[in-house]
Amino acid sequence: MIELRNVTKLYPNGTKGLNQINLTFGEGEFIVIVGLSGAGKSTLLRSINRLHDISEGDILIDGKSITSAKGRQLRLIRRNIGMIFQSFNLVKRSSVLRNVLAGRVGYHSTLRTMTGRFPERDMNLAFEALNRVNIIEKAYSRADELSGGQQQRVAIARVLAQEAKIILADEPVASLDPLTTKQVMDDLKKINLELGITTIVNLHYVDLARQYATRIVGLRGGQVVYDGPVAEATDEIFAEIYGRPIEEDELLGARRA
């Protein structure tokens, strides 16, 4: 369970990235956060695993405050939260397997991980994760030999190997074409359903959000303007979130046509 209590983020230049946000995400939910760029989607997501520090309020992960956690405590909380990025964030020169194993380092001592001797169980986890996203045959290829969609699937495998209970995905399909977008979103949905991992995704495309989410959160100017089930998120609601009617480039289907 993730609880955000009165979360406010002030940037050094005085602008408010997030303004008094109160949200609770339950286990197994598939939440999509929508909003214009600059609405605070990314800031919100990055606050949950504290890649960004917040100025006011508190964020609780399974009852523990990540806001006040330090050092090892913070790392232990982060270990349970996997993150997927728009630009994949793989080490391009390392092998796919090594990138996936990098998700395991939080579980072991520094020395053990640096000598590269991961236990048998970790190896099995890594291969199983790769198998789940259907790229096990690429395990020993260099990450930069893979296509964008494949690289994002490696990133998903890394999160799976991490045995995360929560997945945060920050615009995971923004740099992919429509076909691979569908594959990656399907992978995320499948993992959410089969393993019951709470998944929070930032998305730009309205139709994708409707297709995959169980719950939609709309952000505008750093404030929550909509929070509810996907069925109730009508075109009028989206128009309100965006402050204007939905435009062509916010629909993935339009691009495919």
Binding site: N124, L125, F127, E128
Partner: peptide, 11 residues
């Protein structure tokens, strides 16, 4: 995740 079954690892 269930890790009991051992997958065939690529060489």
């Amino acid at each position: 995740m269930n890790t009991n079954k051992s997958l065939p690892h690529p060489k």
